[in-house]
Nucleic acid binder design. Sequence first.
DNA 1: CCAGTTATGGAACAAGCATTCCAAAAAGCA
DNA 2: TGCTTTTTGGAATGCTTGTTCCATAACTGG
Lengths: 200, 200
Amino acid sequence: MARPRSKSRGELIGGAMRVFWKNGFASTSIEDLVSATGVGRGAIYTDFGGKEDLYRHSLAAYRAKFVDPALALLNDGEDGLDAIRAYFDYFIALHKRHGMPGPGCFFANAMTELAPHDASVKDLVNQHAQDLRVGFRIALKRAAKAHSAILSAAELEELAGFLSTASQGLWSYGRSIDDIAQLECFKKALLKLLHLRMQS
Amino acid sequence: MARPRSKSRGELIGGAMRVFWKNGFASTSIEDLVSATGVGRGAIYTDFGGKEDLYRHSLAAYRAKFVDPALALLNDGEDGLDAIRAYFDYFIALHKRHGMPGPGCFFANAMTELAPHDASVKDLVNQHAQDLRVGFRIALKRAAKAHSAILSAAELEELAGFLSTASQGLWSYGRSIDDIAQLECFKKALLKLLHLRMQS
DNA sequence: CCAGTTATGGAACAAGCATTCCAAAAAGCA
DNA sequence: TGCTTTTTGGAATGCTTGTTCCATAACTGG
């Protein structure tokens, strides 16, 4: 053994993730990755299969670092509507920290840029969409219980899919607007509608 | 006068629009545009300022050809909820014709790819979002009247913004899924919620 | 302190890119 | 038919890209 890495594999992925997330795949050059991570050009090819492979690892890292905590919020607390509110607050806070226009959701970005042309990215993106759908379904179920509302399994699934898709639109939207209040407005409108559904 | 164009300026923009819409800006090369439109390499630089300028013209052409008819649907009919349903049916039919995964919405794609880095694209995208918001607001107002529901101006605006953002999520989603039924499912869930709001 | 091993990062490479240029072709006009 | 005007599309340009290579540097085990 000799010459340990100056930057660990995790640091490389983490740095790459931030650049890919913000700028997308095609607009990010190897040079951008090198200067953003401080890692050597060679490491991208000795540790990974190249640019595409690093991108896929970045998506996985994003899920672990940002999505999983958000999904955990959906499972927390007694009233599912509060959990859903917490989920949106989590990502809105992320955008507030970053400054607007924000980075959006890495998966939503991949959905528009790469999923139509890269099968493995498409699978990762659809897996994320399903994870989100499951999270919302569980939260909605708790919400129905807390508000004594009657929701069939089919209605639950339908509503969960709706929430998953609509929230992707919110994060896309966050990439082009300057005012974070519009994100809050979306959250408010959505929760009003859900509250109404739970009371009917 | 001599040598009329083999392809008109409109044909050039129309062909370019389809390629940019499907593949995005960075992944579309001049060669792709040339082979897709059948137009000469030079025409892109004599008739337009280059690739970026042609992209902006493509966005405008997309609005004229696909968005304006959809916005007209939002203004049509007595019950605004039917108009909103017609709007979604219009774009779902577009995806059905194209085959899944679909092309999504050109503006939604531009929102994630270019808006954060190109100010003029950002303006075009935000203008589109506002057009959509206005369209939904007008439809919602008619819906409230038809269902004798009471909605304040603020609530109307809030709901219109929500619809505009959520629908962008739907078209993004259309780029990564194989089953068109999920688009229908979203529409169904959304209209159920709106119907509920109009009855309260 | 030396030998062995492995990461390093600048140079090199071929391919692809957007853009420019221009000789030739094609059409209108007289 | 000839002259002018304008488009045309291939060649050329200079730059950037993703990827490979390798002499060097740096660390470890003995």
